[in-house]
């Protein structure tokens, strides 16, 4: 599970003339291409469903995800009253999976958003200013790159202690370097275009040049890349919880549920695999959606 460095083609849409058959602006043509892409639409739909159910969990009339029962332990799937069975402490699996989505999605999205803000800011600064500033920022990022991302997350969480906040913090730190690197490379590419020189030659301030001429051209590729990181974040967060470095029991969280259900794998393997299925569905949806966005925004396609 390495964070791959992005292909340099991310910025390619900028240079290419944009095909227009009726549509006018760039974003309109992106939207039109997305509408013709069923995979991306289905993935987006599943994600919306997951997020909505997680947000609305308390109002969905589910069982109490914390209520244990020594009698009803490890019911199989399809048991009356427990659609997806019960876990090793007799808690309703369906309720726990829905509630678990709250933490798991939160743990997946928050570090990426934080890394996007910090890494994006650093990367755009490095790319736009170039020279020594670029050197300084990017070499610091290289230090982080020296460690495999999983190892870095585990060691950071281990050093700071278990808990949701520390997991968020360590995941954010893990994601800043790759976001920074992508931002830097697309910004460097955009900065080389004559329209940025023309803006500089007009005597406009650096901030307004970045705001008007740089951001609009780099945010797309950076956001697409960040979307693909969400699935990695969910998996990493689940992994940390599985190792006991993340969320503490009895909080419902998919990674932690995998861990606690592990002993039940010989009794009821399907049940034990359910949290893993949720992680799988979520991350593959984020990945496919990110691919779809990339394709829709790449005008060469």
């Amino acid at each position: 599970m390495t964070l791959q460095s992005p292909s340099l083609e991310l910025g390619a849409p900028l240079v290419q003339p944009i095909a227009t058959a009726g549509g006018r602006s760039y974003w309109q043509s992106v939207r039109r291409r997305l509408r013709r892409d069923p995979v991306t639409l289905i993935c987006a739909g599943v994600l919306v469903l997951l997020v909505a159910s997680a947000l609305l969990a308390p109002w969905l009339g589910l069982d109490d995800p914390y209520k244990t029962s020594m009698i009803r332990r490890l019911y199989p799937l399809g048991s009356p009253g427990h659609l997806l069975g019960t876990d090793e402490l007799g808690r309703d699996m369906f309720a726990r999976l829905v509630y678990g989505g709250r933490l798991s999605l939160f743990m997946g999205v928050t570090p990426v958003v934080c890394a996007l803000l910090i890494g994006g800011l650093l990367g755009i600064t490095a790319g736009f200013l170039g020279g020594r500033v670029n050197m300084l920022i990017m070499r610091i990022m290289d230090v982080f790159y020296a460690f495999p991302s999983v190892l870095l997350a585990i060691s950071l969480s281990g050093a700071m202690g278990a808990g949701a906040e520390n997991t968020l913090l360590s995941l954010t730190l893990v994601f800043i370097p790759p976001v920074c690197r992508v931002s830097e490379s697309v910004t460097t590419q955009v900065r080389g275009f004559d329209f940025v020189d023309a803006a500089r030659a007009s005597g406009a301030s650096m901030l307004s040049i970045v705001r008007v001429h740089v951001l609009g051209n780099v945010l797309g590729p950076i956001l697409v890349y960040a979307t693909s990181l969400i699935s990695v974040a969910i998996i990493l967060a689940a992994g940390l919880s599985f190792l006991g470095l993340g969320v503490k029991p009895p909080e419902p969280e998919w990674g932690l549920m995998l861990n606690t259900l592990r002993q039940a794998i010989y009794v009821n393997p399907v049940l034990a695999a359910l949290p893993g299925v949720m992680i799988f569905i979520t991350s593959i949806c984020f990945n496919l959606m990110s691919d779809g966005l990339r394709a829709a925004m790449d005008v060469k396609a």
Partner: peptide, 22 residues
């Protein structure tokens, strides 16, 4: 002529950028 125009801005936005900045 292509690289010196921002592909995300309309012609009016491109032309108004410098005067507004001033």
């Amino acid at each position: 002529s292509y690289a010196s125009l921002n592909p995300r801005l309309t012609i009016a936005e491109t032309l108004a950028f410098a005067p507004k900045a001033h």
